[in-house]
Design a protein around this nucleic acid. Structure first.
Lengths: 189, 189
DNA sequence: CGAGGCCTTGACCGCGGTCAATGCCCGTGG
DNA sequence: CCACGGGCATTGACCGCGGTCAAGGCCTCG
């Protein structure tokens, strides 16, 4: 059952069996129903999640009250309200399970503890940050350079599972277009 | 002269005198004229820069040929085409000096060497990545939630030096609005 | 002094958002 | 099992933000 998490770790860094055990012992399992909100704005993000099964979504509310989705995370990925996790300030973002989901999680405190006692853990975190940065930057560039149609096509090409697996409403809020526009785009192409 | 760089490092991490010397020995100085391009698309980013005096700008070209500015960096900050530096793939971005600028730089090779021999260097890099991620995310959110007027006001409030110090053209390309729109915004408020 | 950028201002227009009506699917309870 | 209600998707009509194009003025630097 913890196979997934341990092999994820072993893929990224060189680590002894005892250290893996030490790491895994700090993770706990939890099971949440579809639509469950794990973190709300105003709270400080205290946990890092690893998705065993299901899907998490990081989103926030605009001034007008519409949801804007910043990230989707699926099986075998880490996810959290990363800005809050980094800054230790209250989150502006929600973290929500959008399917029935099974998660491992580690507290921020234990996570920072690992950074100190396992040097390689620092490296794993670095890789995660690098990945998050690159993803984020590509997304930023896509908003600047591409119109709604091109953004949709790009998502379809690079990440079809998002379009297939998730309801239109959420795909639209991820592309930062209205549900209506997405509907029109789909019917055309 | 190397004061600035060493005190920057000492602010972020705990490090011995010998180690600081070791780090500094890998940095070289260079002086570049206004408008000089340091990295162009197609090249792989081989260097990390530290700005002693002046200003760098990271930007790229849209399909239409207009410039889109992704980041400005001023005195006492690190800067590079970070995506390329991380992925080791060819850059999509330019790095340009937009004033007469004095820089320290370290090669990517030496930088990665430091990661291996000085554990605290990993931590410094981590902090840099965290900062870059948070900045980037805030920028992403501002594009999603704010219209042109609000983005301009926010920039003016949070980073007035960008608006004051740099030509309109570049401020506009940073806000992702046309020069004309920025001009109209300034004349109104 | 001239030329080339940069900034300003006006006229126009298109992408994509909002609002509204309708249809569809699905879960829930009588 | 069917009826109903609520959320999601579709389609049409309309409109506003901000982009583009163009002309004119100004400043800077060679």
């Amino acid at each position: 059952m913890r196979e997934r998490l341990s092999s994820y770790i072993r893929e990224k860094i060189i680590i002894s069996d005892e250290e893996v055990e030490q790491v895994l012992s700090l993770f706990k399992v939890m099971q949440v129903k579809k639509n469950k909100i794990l973190i709300s704005p105003g709270e400080t993000c205290q946990r890092l999640y690893f998705i065993y099964k299901g899907c998490l979504r990081i989103f926030f509310l605009t001034a007008g009250g519409t949801e804007a989705t910043r990230h989707f995370a699926f099986e075998n990925q880490f996810a959290t309200a990363l800005v809050s996790f980094i800054t230790n300030e209250t989150s502006k973002e929600f973290v929500q399970a959008i399917e029935d989901t099974i998660l491992y999680y580690i507290s921020q405190k234990d996570f920072y503890h690992l950074l100190q006692i396992i040097p390689q853990w620092e490296k794993l975190y670095r890789h995660y940050l690098e990945y998050a940065y690159v993803t984020n930057t590509n997304r930023l560039m896509s908003f600047i350079t591409l119109d709604a149609t091109a953004r949709y096509r790009q998502l379809l090409a690079q990440n079809p599972s998002i379009v297939m697996r998730l309801p239109n409403k959420m795909v639209a809020s991820y592309l930062n277009i209205s549900q209506e526009t997405l509907s029109r785009l789909k019917s055309k192409a």
